[in-house]
């Protein structure tokens, strides 16, 4: 249900401006300028990167179901439109509490790390409470295990206190969720001689769809992260989780190299030549940088006159299809310039 609702609301925002695979990239959190820009322009930042483990095959299957159930229709150009029952579902579920937990653009990198640290930490402290150090870890990624080890070493002399504090904080956070959500979350935790339920077991026991389970967990983590951020003093242990969480790094690696050179006053053409990249690639980088920079020097690329011309065309078309906009403005304005203006204005 949750998955369907999210897909449908993405489609309703995209209307016929983007193909259905743009929804997939958005949910996966694809680090491409197109996807990041889509998420800004269409005001879908809260859904960006909320389903990193989503498989294309499963996505396609769900879309087909939506089409079969007459909630969506797929057009020839692979864009999707809502049917009347699709619209209906959208309005009926608009107040679906859990949807409001999502804050993808801020948390898409932090949430998985936070969850994995939590899972392994709980397994570690509960096992060590029973003096069992020979358990098979639920998470075995070195970055996570090293972090948990470090925490554990610092706290090993106050274990009992630490464990009950961790319990207390988690309990408080779960109280902010619905009964079912809390149950799902607790069922997926592993501890001493106890291994948490897998997604499909949870789906079976709560009568939910399998695709929804990772979304429910992610939503809850987003909710937890925002509660903790608002009140770090009430959550001393979880506040530690924040210390070295990955920062929402914003731009991609390649774009940040371009930015270095731009800062040294190289032109886009010079950078392309230097880096043996196509000019269009460098333009993509510039647009990406513009999205994240608060003080992007737009005038260097687009005169103020042209800026207003583009903005007027955007209002006029009320679509964000580059082609439509390009058609309305004078010929000397390039696609690059249009995209740049959209990026800087974070237009919606």
């Amino acid at each position: 249900m949750l998955f369907d609702y999210i897909v449908i609301s993405c489609c309703s925002r995209f209307r016929d401006g983007r193909s259905i695979s743009a929804v997939y990239h958005l949910l996966k959190g694809k680090r491409s300028i197109q996807t990041v820009q889509d998420s800004h322009i269409y005001q879908l930042n809260h859904f960006y990167g909320i389903y990193p483990t989503l498989q294309k095959q499963d996505f396609d299957e769900q879309i087909h179901k939506l089409v079969d159930d007459s909630l969506l229709v797929l057009n020839n150009d692979n864009t999707a439109a809502l049917t009347d029952s699709g619209q209906h579902l959208l309005h009926r579920q608009a107040n679906h509490g859990i949807v409001h937990y999502f804050n993808g653009m801020d948390y898409y990198q932090k949430a998985p790390v936070f969850l994995e640290r939590l899972l392994l930490l709980i397994q570690t402290v509960t096992n060590s409470a029973e003096n069992n150090f020979q358990f098979i870890p639920v998470i075995d990624k070195p970055i996570i295990t090293n972090w948990v080890k470090k925490q554990y070493h610092q706290l090993r002399h106050h274990q009992a206190v630490f464990r009950s504090q961790l319990y207390k904080e988690l309990y408080q956070l779960l109280q902010c969720c619905s009964e079912t959500e809390a149950n799902i979350f607790v069922d997926s935790l592993s501890g001493y001689n106890h291994y948490g339920m897998s997604s499909f077991q949870i789906a079976d026991s709560y009568g939910l769809k399998r695709v929804d389970i990772p979304l429910v967990k992610t939503a809850m983590i987003h909710q937890m992260l925002s509660i903790i951020t608002r009140n770090t003093t009430a959550y001393p242990i979880f506040a530690r989780f924040f210390h070295d969480l990955p920062q929402a790094s914003g731009i991609t690696n390649s774009a940040s190299k371009t930015k270095e050179l731009l800062d040294k006053q190289y032109s886009a053409e010079e950078i392309a030549a230097r880096r043996h990249l196509r000019l269009n690639t460098i333009y993509d980088h510039v647009v990406e940088i513009a999205l994240y920079e608060d003080e992007f020097p737009l005038e260097q690329y687009v005169t103020t006159d042209k800026q207003s011309e583009i903005l007027a065309a955007v209002n006029d078309t009320s679509s964000y299809k580059l082609k439509d906009i390009k058609w309305k403005v004078s010929e000397t304005i390039s696609y690059f310039q249009i995209r740049l203006v959209l990026a800087v204005e974070k237009i919606s």
Binding site: I122, T126, A129, E130, A160, R163, S164, L166, Y167, L170, Y171, L174, E179, A182, N183, F185, V186, D187, L189, G191, Y192, H194
Partner: peptide, 18 residues
């Protein structure tokens, strides 16, 4: 209930091993 499950997991209250 989830509250009880959480307590059991953490050995809190009735389940406190210490």
């Amino acid at each position: 209930s989830w509250e009880t499950k959480l307590k059991k997991l953490f050995f809190i209250g009735d389940y406190d091993s210490e």
